[in-house]
Design a binder for these strands. Structure first.
Lengths: 184, 184
DNA sequence: GCGGGAATGCGACAAATTGCCGCAGCCGAT
DNA sequence: ATCGGCTGCGGCAATTTGTCGCATTCCCGC
């Protein structure tokens, strides 16, 4: 689609994800789409890379080992307020999506997402109310997931406390969290 | 119980939802929590009410008949930029959540949500600084029950259709309905 | 009136999930 | 160094769900 671009005028993009394999694949895909990709596998490495050369775009995975990718957002924006940050996560929930946007991310996508979706999300304009309203109610499982994520956040990730508030067994909550969010 | 007598020191809140019954219940609950509630059942009515007297808070349902409640957000903020808007919807999705926050809502909750959650969400600070309000979230069972009842009502009591939308087995839904409504 | 399609209630049995142990490791406060 | 709380996880029994089948009933179009 795009005209041939020399390395000079490519947009710089910082990819942060602790899954090395996923990172490699996505890096290649994004490079093919005209970005100059730098990747980091930890929050700290990401901070360093950004400090050396603040990127125009960033794609951040939420569940990095250690601290949440959420905390990375203000850090990146502090270095360069114009950075367009996309949050990408396998454990998507409305609660973290809301938080990410409030912190300044331009978009939020659940994994799996392909490179085209990612590029589109990075480019998305803030003002356009293009989101169509879903016609179906959430499935009970999905609603449960959303609720759990919300309460878990309110409890700062404390699983025991969350289980208590939710009236479910701690072991059960652990098992539910280990799974992926349900689709539909 | 009329609310027009002691509205002086209460915070004004505009509730926009086309479900009259839901509106009544929530209005009462919010009034008990110290808000001066005005309700509107359509986007247009909401605009008029806000135009006459811009509220401090707003709770907006997304799927209003006609146009999306999403479009109401910029409208309300144009009248009064300090309005704290909470989006509340039975058809929650990450995409609309992202959009709502980008448009300036302070929070986004899937229905069903109880009044305590709503108040907490309205009060939530923009950043990661935690709000120390002690709210007791609904148990997952309770949440599931509320959601089932809501969807069942949307489907005019059709159990088969409800089960399909909820992604659960019809037999399971039958069994759940046969049981007592769960408490807390 | 009759056949088709869809809903409903319910029994039975297998599959999956949950509740409930227990244990060991890790902090942070005393 | 000790106590208490949180975490991850294995294992096993109890409970819940998924899946089928079947008999009814209701509604619609022919």
């Amino acid at each position: 689609m795009s005209a041939d671009t020399d390395a000079a005028d490519r947009s710089s993009l910082l990819l942060v994800d602790d899954d090395a394999a996923f990172c490699r694949v996505l890096t290649r895909a994004l490079e093919r789409r005209g970005f100059a990709v730098t990747s980091a596998h930890s929050s700290i490495a990401a901070q360093q890379a950004a400090g050396a050369d603040p990127p125009e775009y960033a794609v951040v995975d939420l569940n990095l080992a250690g601290d949440s990718g959420l905390l990375l957002i203000p850090g990146l924006l502090a270095l360069e307020p114009a950075t367009r940050i996309l949050v990408l996560t396998g454990y998507a929930s409305i609660a973290t999506a809301v938080e990410a946007i409030k912190l300044g991310a331009v978009n939020y996508l659940p994994k799996p997402a392909d490179a085209d979706q990612i590029v589109a999300a990075l480019a998305a304009t803030g003002g356009a109310a293009g989101a169509a309203i879903n016609q179906r109610p959430l499935s009970v499982n999905r609603l449960e997931w959303e609720h759990i994520q919300r309460v878990l956040r309110d409890n700062d990730g404390n699983i025991s406390a969350t289980a208590r508030q939710l009236g479910m067994h701690r072991r059960t909550l652990q098992r539910k969290l280990a799974k992926r969010p349900v689709r539909t």
